[in-house]
Computed example of a mutant assay.
Amino acid sequence: MTPPPPFLLNLLDAGSQPVISTVVERVVGYPNWLYKLIGHPVTWMGKLINLMDERMNTMAHVKSLSRLNGILAVLLLCTGVWIAATAINAVCNLIPYGWALSALLASSLIAQKSLRDHVRDVNVALSSSLAAGRIAVANIVGRDTRGLGVSDVVKAALESLAENTADGVVAPVFWYCVGTLTIGGLPAIAIYKAINTADSMIGHKTPQYLHFGWAAARLDDLVNLPASRLTALLFVAAALFSGKDQAVKAARITWRDARRHRSPNAGWPEAAMAGALNMRFGGPRTYGGEFVKLPYMGDGRDHFLRQDIETGLKLYDRAMLVMFVLLVLFAFAV
């Protein structure tokens, strides 16, 4: 029997796992039947976070003790996830083709397909009615969606697409690659997802979580720092498909506007997408009834049409293609 070509053998090692995970997740995603059967790793992490919130978030009125409990909760969460993921990874390493099983498990922690599907659902819903569009976009944004017009719904969907590309796709893939060179790919991506989930659940500036969620929020900012910049570069590279001038403009807008955002990370992918699409993101909106005025990013048009969602998804697809090429290069390098 003829042995596989050397280049195929090179892809079937640890460095190939991010490639396999990304392809599997993009094509298959996380099946609904599996979610109904056993849930999802993020929901399992969420249950642990809820448990610690109930048991440890009891000193919200005392800053020092609440922060200390929050730090301890994050440490316990990351340690527990690391132990579980490392044990699973060790078992995978003991069985034939275990690297493929490990890659398959890790694919559940990447949201490439689900993000695209949720954003596209907004477009489909808007084709039915504005009310349906508001309901669909409420699934992917934290802002209040009541009273939003078509343009506002589309802008919210595109901003969410930009931001979630960073923390839902690029960041887990980035830490997966880092993990393959250090502690193992599966443990690394699992720890990132745990931190990101903790931030989404307790990293709020409300009286209940202002101090208890401080560690989760700050750690999430830190681990998303490299991926947010990398995502901006991916959008700039994707803009090259529309010509060099468009990519240059996207890069200029990113450099000029990204740091205006109140988040240390969200502004980078949002500014890059705004520049690549000749649009303007940001501006006033409400969160939980509280009026917030965010700085504008980009100098393009600020009136959006339903069809702009498909334009944004096309840019997203091109950015994901660039990421895939980089992952293949990483596999060969490793």
Rank of each mutant, 00 (worst) to 15 (best):
P4V: 09
P6V: 15
F7E: 14
A14D: 12
A14I: 13
P18Q: 12
V27Q: 03
L37Q: 08
H40T: 06
T43F: 12
M45H: 06
L51I: 07
D53H: 07
R55H: 12
A60C: 05
R67K: 14
L77A: 06
L77I: 07
A85N: 06
A90K: 05
V91M: 13
V91Y: 11
V91E: 07
G98H: 02
A103F: 12
A106G: 05
L115M: 07
V119E: 04
A125P: 05
S129M: 11
S129E: 13
A132V: 06
G133R: 07
A136S: 11
A136L: 08
A138G: 08
V141Q: 02
R146C: 08
R146P: 00
V150S: 07
V153D: 00
V153A: 04
V153E: 00
K155Q: 14
A156Y: 01
A157I: 13
A157T: 10
L158E: 02
T165K: 01
A166V: 04
P172Y: 05
P172F: 08
L181Y: 04
T197F: 08
D199P: 08
G203I: 12
F212D: 02
A217Y: 02
R218E: 05
H261C: 11
R262F: 12
W268F: 15
E270Q: 15
R280D: 01
G283P: 05
G283K: 01
P284V: 12
T286E: 14
Y296I: 00
G298L: 03
D302C: 07
D302F: 06
R318M: 05
A319R: 01
L326F: 11
L327Y: 03
L329I: 15
F330L: 10
